[in-house]
Design a protein around this nucleic acid. Sequence first.
DNA 1: GTGAAAGCGCTAACAA
DNA 2: TTGTTAGCGCTTTCAC
Lengths: 331, 331
Amino acid sequence: MASIKDVAREAGVGVGTVSRAINNTGYVSPATRKKIDKAVQKLNYTPNELARNLFRNRSGIVGVIVPDLDHPFFSCLVKHIEMQLYKQGYKTMVCNAVGVSDREREYLDMLERNIVDGIITGSHCLDGEEYLRHEKPIVSIDRDFGPKIPIVGSDHMMGGELAAELMIRDGRKNVLQIAGVSPHILANERHLVFQKKLEDHHVRVRSISMDWNVFSWEAFYEAARNLVDGYSDIDGIFAGDLGVVAYMNMASQRGMHIPEDISLVGFDATSVTKMVYPHITAIRQNVPLLAEVSVNTLLDQIEQRRDILHRQILNVEVCYGGTTKAEREGA
Amino acid sequence: MASIKDVAREAGVGVGTVSRAINNTGYVSPATRKKIDKAVQKLNYTPNELARNLFRNRSGIVGVIVPDLDHPFFSCLVKHIEMQLYKQGYKTMVCNAVGVSDREREYLDMLERNIVDGIITGSHCLDGEEYLRHEKPIVSIDRDFGPKIPIVGSDHMMGGELAAELMIRDGRKNVLQIAGVSPHILANERHLVFQKKLEDHHVRVRSISMDWNVFSWEAFYEAARNLVDGYSDIDGIFAGDLGVVAYMNMASQRGMHIPEDISLVGFDATSVTKMVYPHITAIRQNVPLLAEVSVNTLLDQIEQRRDILHRQILNVEVCYGGTTKAEREGA
DNA sequence: GTGAAAGCGCTAACAA
DNA sequence: TTGTTAGCGCTTTCAC
């Protein structure tokens, strides 16, 4: 593996000159440049990024922590984050927290060890203070760590509002929502708004909770079975996409009719809402934008490009499917 | 950010001693160790991995290239690869090739630049020679690059055989398969075997192709629509999970009955096969094992632990759902 | 047991 | 314009 010294020797110049030529920084005469180019060609030289990293004290890598890479929302998010980072010259290191706080912590520590230049986190099993201990840039998706860490998220309040409206338009009177449980996450707001709005319209709302950090399909399935059996009187469900999918499965097995018997509204509008039949009516988070804004917010910090907004909340919208009777207004 | 020098000064010892203490390499007396520990505590010292990387000429990072991170098979694969790498002390850098050969190439180049210690690739839009140019360890999933690059994959021939058997047991006479097109991938074998076996049993088999590197849901949907309209006489379909899902959607819209009218067999048995109703009968690839074997094969090369097997083919199995009439034998 | 010093490959300041 | 040199922070001989 040829080094810059080898190139310098081969070209008969100093290493500084080679460095300047390679990086197009500072003066280097056309003649010298030609010699250097030839030497680079001949030795098949590629700069060793490890040495550059040490000098610059930056790795060009951003860490992305999510609860589960194999979850339609997070795989989509990571995909778009990777594409945004790539566009801006950064690489993406991923971490599956899989509900294990040690893993989350260990990835966070990579900030101090200079392995990553910053972190975007969508996971929440670790205590907030563990995040606040770190000096380097962090962006949080959907969880509020207080004023020191910028947060990017969707407008869950609007989401709860829109979901409630769908239930009202469908004339439902006895609905249930499945809420994730985790402190300080924006998602909590949507359940509060949903409940409030519906109760204002004299609709009965019950809520059940599921662990936010565990996404086993079996757990959803089990929960859905309990629902069908234990809450046979409900006529509407508001839940994450996967919760709705699981419920639809059970409902189909029991021969229920959707949306005649019950209205189902998902949250996220991931690809799975288009895989089942009928397609699921869901509140869509704008994942590409979520990725773009979080990446920009992080890189603004890393490169100290501009002041950081502490809180950026993105719009959500209804994505109409066949699990509600309501359709796009004017359609 | 305290450096090892600061610690040495604080503890009143030399940097070499600190290094030895930190890494538990070589002798260091209990008394000295105590002093060093205290200094480390006081200065909140963390070793700078960038400097270590330069010295060792290793980054501890493995690159994983997939066509699309937001695809149920690959997101599951990447998840398990990350978990395996983590267990062995490595970090995971991801690349969405998204069908763009430049991106794939650029990630490959990180091998020469020492950004990653090795690469596991599940993408195939780049020419084989581009892979063979590289010196550092590469493991290929499902694509044969010739003798220089180890390949790990599923037994697609057995998969084709098992799928064909399902069609035969269901008494189908006129089936269709959707094949990805890409040269030198193991997946090609399953379609040959499937066709051969069924034709031996006097079943008519037609094949249509789709671009292997593009996974847009719309494309699948469009293809499914064409199928329902253009091939109304078929009574069996063998395709990737998503192809089957798309077809089921169209079939449901047209009021077709599954599996009475038609048998559907997926390949991969990703989570989506359990999301739709009925669940899809599919040939399962053992993704956790695929991840484990490819990671071990790569790390064996990186750490020169042992001889590398060139070709490791893992078993597949039938995962019974409700889209075929056949059930588990003896069930 | 421990410290001093060389060097991993690169960049940037400085002299020439 | 160019070459030399001093680090970036760490590990590892090699004397002591």
